[in-house]
């Protein structure tokens, strides 16, 4: 592996939508830091445009979106679309919230990564991001999604 492959994993943790607390996102951000990631934390009420602009400047490997507003069926596809539009196809888009199983499947079919419900352990989340990012780094030319 080159130094570039071994560099710390960078993750943007953002809270989208209009609801007003970010305790969950902060807990996730701290857990990712403790797992050795470099976490860029931008807090509440991020629009999809702000999220992808930040993802670009920070050259992150993954974006973790936290939302509880029920707007997941519009926000995730929008962020994904904007990421692709700016050429950030490699970036893993994942996240969590209270999302019905059918919606999870629909979003994953679009190319969103695994989504985590309230019951998930933080270890499962960090393991997933690490594995997925390293796979994407390792197979640079392979399509980012199955």
């Amino acid at each position: 592996m080159s130094t570039l492959d071994e560099r710390p994993i960078r993750v943007l943790v953002a809270k989208a939508g209009l609801d007003g607390h970010d305790r969950g996102a902060k807990v996730v951000a701290a857990a990712l830091r403790d797992a050795g990631f470099e976490v860029i934390y931008t807090g509440l009420r991020q629009t999809p445009e702000m999220i992808v602009a930040t993802a670009l400047q920070e050259d992150v490997d993954a974006v973790g979106l936290s939302l509880h507003s029920g707007a997941h069926m519009s926000l995730f596809p929008r962020v994904l679309e904007l990421l692709k539009a700016q050429g950030s196809d490699q970036v893993l888009l994942t996240g969590g919230g209270i999302i019905p199983e059918a919606d999870v499947e629909a979003l994953m079919a679009l190319g969103v990564g695994q989504l985590f419900g309230p019951g998930t352990t933080l270890a499962a989340l960090t393991d997933y991001i690490r594995d997925e990012v390293m796979a994407r780094r390792g197979v640079g030319s392979a399509p980012p999604h199955p």
Binding site: A29, R33, D34, A35, E38, V39, I40, Y41, T42, G43
Partner: peptide
């Protein structure tokens, strides 16, 4: 690991 929060 690091928590980078200045952008906020």
């Amino acid at each position: 690991g690091a928590l980078l929060g200045d952008r906020i």
